[in-house]
């Protein structure tokens, strides 16, 4: 079975927004988005359980996003596809989902996996947009996944408890970070990653444009809370809550 995992490179350490472009400064060192490691791990497990298949990792991002792909290859993925195009920088959901869907359509995977969010922009919406463009069923927030006999079954965690949802392949699944504990790449894996096939694509190769429909207008300071009031006893807490009309 062919499994594609969509991953993202996120900046390491302290993140900043570039005041000029109002975009995230991605110039520094990058790492594999930690939530995507769960998706890579799950893909590897599905492949290991079925005993055959291919795990392709796919990203859209600047040249240094190749580092994230290399980490996924070191974990055990077989091949990497990198959509690297200046014209895709700053893409919003509509644009990103269009590009990723085009890259995925070329691969025709039976299963597409996403992590539950990106650690930099806290985005947690991409998979449903990609599934829509691919016209495939989607299950998100999956804490347990089974793949057998051409069907996927996902245990989705919601605000109210768990839903068990089943869909035929091909399908798009977003796993939560409760789904597994990602493996660390072995030394052999790290050494071998460089030799694995890595393809680089432009928007022209995919025949799509990355046209965003949202815009960033301004960066502002978040409202501060100021110095907290102090208390030491339960009675003082009650007095505070009454003053705030919370009791």
């Amino acid at each position: 079975m062919k499994i594609a995992v969509c991953v993202k490179q996120v900046p390491e350490g302290n993140k900043r927004l570039d005041p000029a472009t109002k975009r995230l400064d991605r110039s520094g060192e990058g790492v594999l988005n930690p939530f995507d490691a769960n998706a890579v791990e799950e893909a590897l497990r599905v492949k290991e359980r079925t005993g055959e298949g291919e795990v392709v990792v796919l990203t859209m991002g600047p040249p240094q996003a190749a580092d994230a792909l290399r980490k996924a290859l070191a974990m055990g993925a077989d091949r990497a596809v990198h959509v690297a195009d200046e014209r895709a920088a700053g893409s919003d959901l509509v644009a990103t989902s269009r590009v990723l869907a085009a890259a995925l359509a070329r691969e025709e995977p039976e299963l597409v996996l996403f992590g539950q969010q990106s650690a930099d922009s806290d985005g947690a919406v991409l998979w449903a947009a990609v599934a829509e463009r691919l016209e495939r069923p989607v299950i998100s927030q999956v804490a347990e996944l089974t793949v057998e006999r051409g069907r996927v079954r996902g245990k989705r965690q919601t605000e109210f408890g768990y839903d068990l949802i089943e869909a035929p392949l091909p399908a798009v699944i977003a796993v939560s970070d409760a789904v597994n504990e990602p493996r660390y790449p072995s030394l052999k894996g790290i050494m071998g990653a460089k030799k694995k096939p890595q393809e680089e694509l432009s928007l022209a190769d995919l025949g799509v444009e990355a046209e965003s429909r949202t815009t960033v207008l301004e960066l502002t300071e978040p409202p501060g809370r100021g110095e907290p009031a102090r208390a030491e006893t339960a009675e003082q807490i009650i007095a505070f809550l009454e003053q705030k009309r919370l009791l």
Binding site: V94, S97, L126, A129, V130, E132, S212
Partner: peptide, 11 residues
């Protein structure tokens, strides 16, 4: 997110 993709609408 699905609606955004369907309508090519900004979310």
């Amino acid at each position: 997110a699905g609606l955004a993709a369907r309508l090519d609408a900004g979310l």
